Simulated scan of single mutants.
Amino acid sequence: MLNVALGLEHEAIAAYQIGAESKLLKPEVLKVAVAFQGHHKGHRDALAATVKKLGGTPVEAKAIADYAKALNAGALKDQAGVVGLAIKLELGPPTPIWASSRPSKTRPWPRSPAASPPTRPCTGPP
């Protein structure tokens, strides 16, 4: 499971790199994208270290071209498209490049916290 999460971090890092190199982002938006990419790099490093600590081999990142193809980066034409892709990746399920690592129908991806219904505070038994 940690390697699945690590693979998703690799994908996010690549997506932000593709967006940054697209020349479609205004400077203030590019600054935010690079900051988000930095957060994903921190997650990647922590996950890779944990996998190693547990005796495993961290999954390697794919080539940037593989991510670009899976993310349909060639279709990005403007800043709104790049930002939309970032939102989709941050809130939605992973793209097909990691499809083999996805949980089954009986173990679906959890919904994003923003899309989840509100929960009641934990105050003891109902």
Score class of each variant (00 low, 15 high):
Ala5Glu: 03
Lys23Leu: 13
Arg111Met: 06
Lys52Leu: 07
Glu90Ser: 12
Pro113Gly: 02
Leu8Ser: 14
Glu21Pro: 03
Phe36Cys: 11
Val29His: 04
Tyr67Trp: 06
Leu89Asn: 04
Ser100Gln: 10
Cys122Pro: 14
Ala115Gly: 06
Leu71Ile: 03
Arg102Cys: 14
Gly124Cys: 13
Pro108Lys: 00
Pro110Phe: 07
Leu54Gln: 10
Lys105Cys: 06
Gly124Glu: 15
Ser22Ala: 14
Ala35Met: 11
Gly84Trp: 05
Ala73Trp: 01
Ala48Val: 10
Leu6Pro: 14
Pro110Met: 10
Ala48Gly: 11
Leu91Val: 05
Gly19Glu: 00
Thr123His: 13
Ala99Met: 08
Ser22Met: 08
Pro125Ser: 13
Glu21Phe: 02
Ile87Gly: 09
Leu24Lys: 01
Leu24Trp: 02
Asp45Phe: 04
Ile97Glu: 05
Ala5Gly: 09
Ala114Met: 10
Ile64Val: 13
Met1Gly: 11
Gly84His: 04
Pro121Tyr: 02
Val51Phe: 03
Ile18Cys: 09
Val34Trp: 03
Val59Glu: 06
Ile13His: 06
Val83Ser: 09
Lys77Glu: 05
Ala99Val: 05
Ala48Lys: 00
Lys69Val: 08
Gly74Asn: 15
Met1Tyr: 08
Lys31Arg: 13
Lys31Pro: 14
Ala49Phe: 03
Val83Tyr: 02
Glu90Tyr: 06
Gly38Ser: 05
Pro103Lys: 05
Ile87Arg: 15
Pro121Arg: 01
Leu47Tyr: 03
Lys53Asp: 10
Ala99Asn: 08
Ala46Lys: 00
Ala20His: 00
Lys52Cys: 05
Asn3Tyr: 04
Pro110Val: 08
Ala63Phe: 09
Ala12Lys: 03
Pro94Thr: 06
Glu60Lys: 15
Leu6Ala: 12
Trp98His: 11
Ser101Ala: 15
Gly38Glu: 09
Glu11His: 12
Val32Lys: 13
Leu25Met: 05
Glu11Gly: 09
Ala115Thr: 03
Ala33Leu: 13
Pro27Ile: 00
Asn72Val: 10
Lys62Ala: 15
Asn3Cys: 04
Thr95Trp: 07
Asn72Met: 06
Glu9Tyr: 03
Ile64Leu: 12
Thr119Leu: 08
Lys52Thr: 11
Trp109Ile: 06
Met1Thr: 08
Pro103Gly: 15
Leu8Pro: 07
Ala99Gly: 08
Ala14Ile: 03
Ala46Gln: 04
Ala68Gln: 10
Ala115Gln: 08
Glu60Gly: 11
Ala20Glu: 06
Thr95Gln: 10
Leu25Ile: 00
Ala99Trp: 01
Pro126Val: 10
Arg107Gly: 02
Ile97Trp: 01
Ala63Asn: 15
Pro113Gln: 03
Ala86Ser: 07
Thr119Asp: 06
Met1Ser: 12
Ile64Trp: 03
Leu6Met: 12
Lys41Ser: 13
Leu25Tyr: 00
Phe36Tyr: 13
Ala73His: 01
Glu28His: 12
Ala14His: 00
Lys77Met: 06
Ser22Gln: 07
Leu71Asp: 02
Arg120Ala: 14
Lys77Ser: 10
Val82Glu: 05
Leu6Arg: 02
Arg44Lys: 15
Pro118Glu: 11
Ala12Cys: 05
Pro94Ala: 14
Lys105Thr: 08
Ser101Tyr: 12
Ser101Trp: 13
Lys31Asn: 13
Ala65Trp: 00
Ser112Arg: 02
Gly38Gln: 03
Glu11Gln: 12
